[in-house]
Nucleic acid binder design. Structure first.
Lengths: 204, 204
DNA sequence: ACCTGAACACCGTTCAAGT
DNA sequence: ACCTGAACACCGTTCAAGT
């Protein structure tokens, strides 16, 4: 009956990310994913080798939005700032998957490779190779740290809590919007202080 | 036959942390934990309400080693540096549990409360309350980012890989020791640059 | 070629029952 | 008071079988 395939790797990835965004990382199971696609769990394994692999692919799609083009300007400070901001923005769009990225060698493979551009930009700006490596690592610290220890994270529960208790005054919306602003400003503070501090010890 | 209890909450916590250190976060199951304690899985629930709860308790024990006494000196720079270093050291001793801390509101409850001391120290040094909050958050970014995106993490597999392939030349040991040094130096670079950058915009 | 049904070896957690 | 056995409702993954 099914003329052409119901499933495809990309359809699976999209549905998986949707579930993660909605139900959290623990909320994704192969069975639920299959059900949402109108299919049996076993069918997924014709298009995806493993759940872990699927998550890596989903993560890779998100990390594609990281923009390292800022280093083409020749200004390493501008490069660092724009890369870090786009990186954080990409993660902030799908906060629930960030813990997975932190898990295994996920970030090393995809994003450290991308950070090779950063490395190159830094070296051609006069930093030593070792310094460049450490600066790139520091950038990851800030980006992943900000994505993970976000004030907004964990507010999904609080949001429900407040909504149930005080259905009229929409405190929840206030909380999240304040938290998001605080997250943003804290990241900007950390990033700017870091780059300023770096600039204090370099030629360029 | 068992005169007095075989199990206790603290014995369970110790065994759990040991398994996590050895087998990773995914390697901990209530059944394995019970077996290692010479007991049935169900027995654990007399002393521990839930696996998640157990992990929170284990985490709390680790975070007790964070030292915020550096703020008593009155020098906020010294306070930040010593707090960040002890924080990172505490996490680095048990890297496998860090992803859990990043998960839920785990870090907010225990460690943000501890960071109240940081907040107080910063405010009495002349920073505004909002700035103090953002600086404390930035500190967490660096500490958790460093603990998570560590170069050493994921080397456990590589280590096995190298050991199996080249059993004689112990490349693995070299890799991990280099990675550890790079982790340490990168964190110091990030931390010092951050504090230097902060100092560039403040009275004290 | 693509999907299904049923099974395997696991989970966390509960609860009546044993001592 | 403390632990056990058995069960419940889940997992990820495999594989012969159907179309």
């Amino acid at each position: 009956m099914p003329r052409n395939p119901i499933l495809s790797a990309s359809r699976i990835r999209t549905a998986a990310l949707h579930i993660i965004d909605r139900d959290g990382l623990d909320g994704l199971s192969m069975r639920k994913l299959a059900a949402e696609l109108g299919v049996q769990a076993a069918s997924l394994y014709g298009h995806v080798s493993t759940k872990d692999d699927l998550l890596h692919e989903v993560a890779a799609g998100i990390l594609e939005k990281v923009d390292v083009s800022g280093f083409e300007s020749g200004d390493w400070r501008q490069g660092l700032l724009s890369c870090a901001r786009s990186y954080r923005a990409a993660l902030a769009e799908h906060p629930n998957i960030v813990p997975f990225l932190a898990y295994g060698p996920a970030h090393r493979e995809a994003s450290l490779r991308r950070l090779d551009v950063v490395h190159g930009g830094l070296v051609s700006a006069g930093w030593s190779r070792r310094e460049a490596t450490m600066i790139a690592a520091s950038l990851l610290y800030l980006v992943f740290g900000a994505a993970l220890t976000s004030f907004s994270s964990g507010f999904s529960e609080d949001q429900a809590f407040y909504r149930d208790r005080y259905p009229n005054l929409d405190k929840a919306h206030l909380l999240t919007s304040v938290a998001r602003e605080l997250d943003h400003d804290s990241f900007e503070l950390a990033l700017n202080a870091f780059v300023t501090g770096l600039a204090a010890r370099v030629p360029g």
